[in-house]
Amino acid sequence: MKVSAVKYLVVFAIQVKNLLEYKINIYLKLIRPIIMVAAVGALWLVLFKVTGRDSIGGFTRKSFIIYLLVIRYIAVFSPGGASITEMNEEIRTGDITMRLVKPMHYMVWLFARNLPIPLVSGIAGLLMVTLLAWFFGAPVPTGWSGVLFCLSVTAAIITQYAFYQGLGILSFWIYDVFPIERFYKAVSGLLSGELIPLTIFGAAAQSILQFLPFASLAFIPGGIYVGLFPFSKAIILVVSQFIWAGFFWILVLWSYNRGLKKFEAQGG
């Protein structure tokens, strides 16, 4: 299959134009992570105060706030959430047919279409995290740790997007995937370290959970950023992230091809 990147760049550009029609949505998406961090962070600050401890699960107050910010913006960077909605809607109404009769790959088209918001939010988020890290005096990973952090974030975004695409692809078999999405978000929120760092669960549970795909989404990149892991262990964790990312993308593409063959194209 001949693939031209230019057409997807135009899809991206057109989508930027689409989004600019509703600018308020962009501002809200930029602000939302800060509110969520403030809410979760406030709970943890209370916990620090009540217990009177300087460190919980290997996190200080500062490192915990930075950890929360980092993982929240990694989630924002992932162009996935909107694609579930769009894919579910297009598959169940049959509107995906209008994409399938064009010389383009639907999954790449969807990616190009869903990239603008996370790209803008993610870049703004990175700047904000860096500023806040500087403000709180938290260590910013540099050198090889910095490289590992970037690789870890990349793997996290790729895996997160694979999960979201997988959920969207389920629409070929299940009419409404939103209950499954909600379930996934609840499980992922708990097991990824998004709400509670996995170190809180104790050493035994952590040793298993950190190698599950969910940890790839938040705990590993967040932990690398705040220096939670020794360098050698961080390398192993990042490698495991890419193995999961590869595995899930193979699964997603396989499922997509199966789904297309099963597709019934509702409506006239």
Partner: peptide
């Protein structure tokens, strides 16, 4: 091939018609 489904749209809903045409210029190279 060209396809028109009367009950579905090829055009981007929120932007001017010409932008959808430009999109198809790119898609069909």
């Amino acid at each position: 091939i060209g396809v028109v489904f009367g009950q579905r749209s090829l055009l981007e809903y929120d932007i001017p018609v010409i932008d959808s045409f430009l999109l198809y210029r790119a898609i069909y190279e």
